[in-house]
């Protein structure tokens, strides 16, 4: 249903402050970044050429894609299990699942990253406990590597992965599941051959959201990676703040934004925006 002209004017007015803010605080400065990428230190495509040839930049790109892919698989899988309980569990299970999904939102990302350091470090809870029961003699390296980064990032992203899945599971027609069982299919078989395929749009939405978030992650990889497992966002930071290499930093930023933009476009082709909340 389309509103009248004045309705639409009203809606535009209500959205104007946000749009204005985004233009002033995001789009305009970003155009500056784009300009730097072509002009610093000298005008030309030199920085983009460096991007394609610099081994360090390429290895960081590949690591970022690899970590983002693993985090996506881990988060979506874990989120799927939690969402099944949240949407289809008993009333008690639902409350418990909801608690598990919401509580992480109340704790800052920084606190959680340091929490994981405390748990995973060589003299952290997990290593001391495993040593005390005699399971291991030397501490396991659980942090300041990709493993720690993946754990910390997945923990942060699971709640975000839940919402598209929940929306897909809620809109599923219960009778289709009954039909499958009535036709002789066991619960397990019904889950894999009917339930999972029917929540496909949720899985795609959830995976894209997690992947896009992962690509630009800064705080968690910086803390849990301990400088050894650098991802793109941290590389940009280093290029701009530690080595005066603004041109390369800007070029990496532009590539990242374009890539994420393309993924978002893909996301909205598969999933309606309202399914993401």
């Amino acid at each position: 249903m389309r509103g009248t002209l004045s309705d639409r004017m009203g809606a535009a007015l209500l959205m104007a402050p946000l749009l204005l803010f985004l233009i002033l605080a995001y789009a305009w400065p970003f155009l500056g970044v784009v300009k730097w990428s072509f002009t610093l230190p000298t005008p030309g495509l030199e920085q983009y050429h460096a991007l394609l040839t610099d081994d360090l930049v390429q290895s960081v790109f590949i690591r970022t894609l690899r970590i983002a892919a693993i985090v996506t698989v881990v988060s979506v899988t874990a989120a799927y299990a939690i969402t099944v309980v949240w949407v289809r569990g008993s009333p008690t299970q639902r409350v418990l699942a909801e608690f598990c999904i919401l509580v992480p939102f109340w704790i800052s990302v920084l606190t959680r990253a340091f929490g994981w350091v405390a748990l995973l470090s060589n003299r952290g809870l997990i290593n001391t406990w495993l040593q005390s029961i005699g399971f291991i003699s030397e501490p396991l390296t659980l942090v300041r590597n990709e493993f720690g980064v993946i754990v910390g990032m997945s923990h942060f992203l699971i709640p975000f992965a839940v919402f598209p899945l929940a929306s897909a599971m809620r809109s599923l027609d219960e009778r289709v599941l009954l039909a499958a069982r009535g036709l002789g299919s066991s619960r397990m078989r019904t889950f894999w051959t009917v339930f999972v395929p029917m929540t496909r749009s949720g899985i795609i939405g959830s995976a894209l959201i997690t992947f896009v978030f992962s690509l630009g992650f800064f705080v968690t990889p910086a803390i849990l990676g301990g400088g050894r497992s650098v991802m793109i966002a941290e590389l940009i930071y280093l290029r701009i703040f530690q080595s005066p290499d603004w041109g390369l930093g800007a070029a990496i930023s532009v590539v990242l934004v374009v890539f994420v933009g393309a993924l978002m476009a893909l996301l909205f082709r598969y999933v309606k925006p309202k399914q993401l909340v």
């Binding site: 027609d173 009778r175 009954l178 039909a179 069982r181 009535g182 066991s186 029917m198």
Partner: peptide, 20 residues
């Protein structure tokens, strides 16, 4: 006896076909 072992054919209101 659970539904899956009763082997009753069922046609639902709205058909409940597998959409995929």
């Amino acid at each position: 006896r659970p539904a899956e072992q009763r082997a009753a054919g069922m046609v639902f209101q709205g058909y409940a076909l597998f959409p995929h």
